[in-house]
Amino acid sequence: MKRQLGVSVYPDHSDIEQDKAYLTLAHKYGFSRIFMSMLEVTEGKEAVSQKFKELIFFAKDLGFETILDVAPNIFEELGISYDDLTFFHELGADGIRLDLGFDGNKEAMLTYNPFGVAIELNMSNDVAYLDNILTYQANTPYLYGCHNFYPQEGTALPYDFFESCSKRFKEKGIRTAAFITSQAGNIGPWDINDGLPTLEMHRHLPVEVAAKHLFATNLIDDVIIGNAYASEQELEALSKVNRYQTAFSIEFVAEANPVEKAIVLNAQHYRRGDITHQVIRSTEVRKVYKNEANPAHDNTQEFQVGDIVIGNDSFGKYKNELQVVLEPHSDPRKNKVGHIVEAEHILLPFIHPWSKFKFVEQ
């Protein structure tokens, strides 16, 4: 399933021209999905319709897919019904996110609406909610899953719970999404906004690190910035994230030589299938560079977690093999050539046997 980047907008808390400018900028950097909150509307059906329609069709012209976040009180406020999604179709919405669920049969019926409006479910509950819907023979291409975000510091999901919830959807082939938080944005749905991540561990991380982490889990297809407005620097950083394999950001040591830099940066690395706890081994590079000299340097200290080491000339057949350190150890036959930036150490557990990975210089 192809992976997407998304942004969020809050038309009831922002200026429409600023929203348009933000979407134009996000489009420039390859974003293609919008989470649009409709939880706070109070202006009446006609005014709401006009505002949301203008913004959604502007986004549609840029190629965005827009999912509206709705709740039962909105249907009462606007005098509309879950049994007729005409209103959302006329707004141009590609889907609606159900903040609260029904009995399973209702959700399944909604996926057969004549307009092809997708029905997105709340993923942040570790219960058999999805299984119940699927027993009613839902139209699964029009069934999405998306986690919640959490504006209050300390209230977002722990990783193990997130993983358990996400597997319920991913194992059924449902498109999944989760939120990360901009460190620049200050607009959300409520008056408390300590950031809007799905995972608490992401609340203070750079957006690109949080996105890499979500993609590395192989449980999330779409990564959405929960708050508005992200800075252009953040949008650009996210646009450079490899969505399909982990690309570690690294810093080289001063003595790293051209051969070592080529080994690190130019190869398609993968972890050997017969793994060890001490290091991640990328062994094919030693065959490619077997005739290249690699004198010893930075080889007498204890290597630490996240260090990148390469076999030097004294390492025989293992010369120019690349390894990522998982457990501290010493070995003078290896040169330390660089280090994975500290924040990205959370990605190391996702390099499994045969996992593909790359490096980019910080």
Rank of each mutant, 00 (worst) to 15 (best):
N105M: 13
P197L: 09
A262S: 14
K60A: 12
A256Y: 05
R175I: 14
L100P: 02
I133A: 02
K167A: 03
R272K: 15
V207A: 10
N73I: 15
V341E: 07
L5D: 04
Q245C: 00
S14A: 12
C165R: 02
A228C: 08
I67P: 01
L78E: 08
P158L: 08
K170D: 03
G338H: 05
L23N: 01
V259K: 12
T24M: 13
L68C: 08
Q278V: 14
A177Y: 00
V325F: 03
P197V: 06
T300Y: 08
L347P: 02
F52E: 07
A178P: 01
Y136C: 06
K358N: 11
Y136M: 05
F315P: 03
A247W: 05
I133Y: 01
V360D: 07
D160Y: 10
E40V: 14
F252A: 05
L25C: 07
K261N: 06
E46C: 10
E342M: 10
Q245F: 09
N299F: 01
N73P: 13
M38C: 12
H352C: 09
G185C: 05
I275C: 14
V7S: 02
Q362K: 15
A21T: 09
T111P: 02
L85E: 00
S249W: 05
F252I: 09
I275E: 14
K60Q: 13
P141C: 00
Q362D: 11
P349M: 07
L55Q: 08
N193R: 10
L214C: 03
S81L: 06
D12N: 09
A228N: 01
F248C: 06
E361N: 13
M201F: 14
Q137C: 12
V324Y: 01
K336P: 00
F357I: 11
S164N: 07
A254H: 15
F52H: 07
S8I: 00
N257H: 06
K172C: 08
T283C: 10
F102W: 10
V209W: 05
Y289C: 05
E344A: 09
E200A: 08
E361V: 11
R168C: 04
D103R: 10
I224F: 02
T276I: 15
V309C: 07
G226A: 04
N242I: 06
P353M: 13
E327I: 13
V325Y: 04
E344K: 10
V259C: 13
L91H: 01
T198S: 06
E302L: 00
K53P: 04
K167Y: 04
G316C: 06
L219I: 04
E17T: 11
A267H: 14
T135V: 11
R333L: 15
E232Q: 11
L134F: 03
E284N: 00
M109K: 09
L196D: 02
I80F: 01
G188E: 06
K290M: 13
D94L: 01
V309K: 05
Y159L: 13
Y150R: 02
S166G: 02
D313R: 13
D103E: 14
V207G: 03
D12C: 09
F179I: 05
E255S: 12
E321V: 00
Y112G: 00
F162M: 07
N335Q: 07
F161N: 08
T181S: 15
E327A: 08
F115T: 01
D12F: 11
M36V: 00
M201E: 15
L25A: 06
D99C: 09
T42D: 14
T283A: 12
I275D: 11
V259I: 14
I74S: 04
